[in-house]
Every structure is written in C-alpha cells, then in structure tokens.
Amino acid sequence: MPLVEVRHLVKEFASGQGLLRRGAVVRAVDDVSFDIEEGETFGLVGESGSGKTTTGRCLLRLVEPTSGEVRFRGRDLLALSAAEMRRVRREMQIVFQDPYSSLNPRMRAGAIVEEPLVIHRMGAGPARRRRVAELFELVGLDPALASRYPHEFSGGQRQRIGLARALALEPSLVIADEPVSSLDVSVQAQVVNLLMDLQQRLQLTYLFIAHDLRLVRHICSRVAVMYRGRIVELAATAAIFDAPQHPYTRALLSAIPVLDPDAPRARLVLDETAVDRSRPLREVAAGHWAAI
C-alpha cells in the first residue's frame, strides 16, 4: 500500500478581487491524483501558481480540500475529526521555504524544537531536554546553541532548526516546500545533503516541492509536473528528464540554464493555446503518465 494516496483532489479559492467579482473562484488544484510510496522522494514541480504548495497543504489539511480523497496509510484523512487529525499529523510534518519567517523570533532555538513535544505531551523534564539535544545533533547543530534566538543563526542554520522541529515527533512523511531556495547558493548543498542523509537514517518519505530542476533530478525518485492546477506528467525521474512527453514538461526542461557556455541552446517555447487542459493522464509507458 502506498503511504499516501491522493485521488481527484480539488481546491477552490474564492477569488480575492473584492466586491466586483464576488462569487468567482480560482481552481488552484484541479482533479489531482497521485501516490507516494513509503521511503521515496516524490518531486512536485511546475510554474509559479500551478498549485504545488496548495496540494502539499491539502495533504495535511492545513487548507481544507474542496473535494477528493487523501489517504494516509489507507486511512481517509478527510473523514477524520479534528482530534483524530491532530494525532495523524504527528506523522506528517512540513518544512517551509523561508527559514526567516517560519521560526518564532521571540522563542529560543531549543524551545522552538521542543514545542511540538510539549503540545503532544511527549516526555518531560530531563528526558525531553535530552531529546532536544539529540535533535540538534541530528541536524548538525551544536546543542549548546539551543539558548540562542533565531536571528543569531545563519539561513542554513535556521533551516536546520526548522528541520529539527519537524523531526521532533518522528514523522514518516515530510513535506518540504522549496526547503533550500531561500538559502545562499553555497549553503544549499549542505541542507540537501542533510535531507538525503536523514531520509536514510530515519526512513523518511519526502514530498519535495521545488523549482530547481537540477536539484529535483538529483534527489527525487519520481516527479509530477503541474501546470495550471493539474498534473500533466508523472513518471520516474529519469523518464521525465530523458523522455518528456507533455509539451509543458518539454518547454520547462529546455529552459533550464546549462552550466556550460558552449552547450547548444535548444529552447522550446510552449504554445499555451495548444494545451488541452481537459485531457486526462494516460500511461504512455510503464509507470509514465502524461496528459497527451
């Protein structure tokens, strides 16, 4: 059984154009279905506004889906009560893009990491403090830094604090929404290595949302490509990069700047009018789905 099963997920937002356009809705996520297998890194890529973050948040019910199904270890999450959902959420954590705004500036680093343990009443006293120290070490931070405030850390260190907090409850699924894109280029690789290392040590499953396609190629086992609220292609990473089928995927891959001044530029421009959004995914090769 896959760890996560998403079926016909839809999320509509009331369009925020004030009084004039009352009643208009934006379909941010439009009939999205996919599975995430235990232990894999499932990548979600696509243009800005295509619905990646909304999809990730729907899985945790941080935003309520409009319709569809989300199953976690076979259980229908949308049917759970708030109390039941809180318990399940221990197993599903999220790491945000921006390590600057996602940590409470008035809390010490140690308290930030400890907070989920307090909320879920796990451990107490010295045992809990030991656990916090362990978590610091797990993400490569000196536990002696626990008494400092977020602004006293660099971006990469803050992202590590966010990660330690996410791992406090020993989740099995971590949704990482652009976890390195706000970091200095020279620090991104450190955090990526840490994510890969933690996955092995803790048997984590990742939903990895990113726009850096080189990075996605490096760490994801499978990739789904979103375009205007829909998944237009889904396959093993190598298949997506070596044999892209959907015109949007092709345009996207051809746009990645190559680190070689001599590389030929073969830019493909997407003809948006030629994309039929109503076309369903079909299996074009084993495990390779495309809406063509």
Binding site: D184, S186, A189, Q190, V192, M196, R217, I219
Partner: peptide, 20 residues
C-alpha cells in the same frame, strides 16, 4: 561550481562548509 547537482543522482553533493 562543484556544489551544483550533477549527473550522479542520489549521491551527496560537494557542499561548501560553513557560511558567508
């Protein structure tokens, strides 16, 4: 240049230690 992901998926990246 060495820290950019290359053609060996899944292997550790050659990170630069420390911060600016």
């Amino acid at each position: 240049l060495a820290s950019v992901p290359d053609d060996r998926p899944g292997t550790p990246l050659r990170a630069i230690r420390g911060a600016v």
